[in-house]
């Protein structure tokens, strides 16, 4: 299992917000495993997906401290929720013609794509869970990895109620302990896992 906590933070799309969030995590002594920031369906809101390497208790404190930041709109520790958490990797493989077929076999199994090909190398694009990508990297290692880049995880809670829940939870500090991560979340609707994880 991944030992880090996955936190989804909706923030105002303003300059300096990333600095505030990262600075708070550093100041409280937490280590970031990965962090991704990007736009959402609302141009004034960005979503940060942060994997922090802490236990549940410490994550709760980190979550509360982040929630206090004025530019943070909502924050959810989604580690224990049913969620889809994916990252993207670009990896340049040493791939002379005699190795290509073998590599392509693995890429096919992992539902990857070849996005660049040169005389003795190629770039492969893979998406999926952190674990899936870790597995792919291990399989590629014997062929010779030239370089790779990973995006860090982005995540969404599964199911029909997830969006409503995020909106309604707000930063309501009155919520009793634990409710920030619970609240019936996505449990009710049955969702199919269509991610094709390996």
């Amino acid at each position: 299992m991944n030992p880090s906590r996955l936190v989804s933070v909706m923030v105002e799309n303003k300059p300096g917000v990333l600095n505030r969030v990262a600075s708070m995590i550093r100041r409280r002594g937490f280590n970031i495993d990965s962090l991704s920031v990007g736009p959402t369906e609302d141009a004034t809101v960005s979503r940060m997906t942060i994997a922090v390497h802490v236990g549940r208790q410490a994550a709760e404190q980190a979550t509360k401290q982040l929630a206090k930041l004025i530019d943070v709109i909502t924050i959810d520790d989604i580690t224990e929720l049913r969620s889809v958490s994916h990252e993207l990797m670009l990896i340049r493989m040493h791939a002379p013609p005699e190795q290509r077929a073998e590599i392509l076999d693995v890429v096919t199994v992992f539902l990857g794509r070849i996005v660049d090909i040169a005389a003795s190398s190629m770039i492969i694009e893979i998406t999926g869970t952190t674990q899936k990508i870790d597995n792919f990297v291990e399989l590629m290692r014997p062929y010779g990895i030239e370089e790779l880049a990973r995006s860090g995880a982005v995540a969404l809670v599964r199911g029909d109620q997830a969006g409503a829940r995020l909106g309604g939870l707000g930063l309501d500090g009155a919520a009793p302990e634990g409710s920030r991560t619970g609240a019936g979340a996505a449990g009710a609707s049955v969702t199919a896992d269509t991610t094709g994880d390996i």
Binding site: E12, G170, L171, D172, G173, A174
Partner: peptide, 15 residues
């Protein structure tokens, strides 16, 4: 009015 800085919560009567 700021969506990212809501008014302080009301105390929970049950508590």
């Amino acid at each position: 009015r700021m969506r990212s800085f809501p008014p302080p919560p009301q105390p929970d009567p049950n508590q």
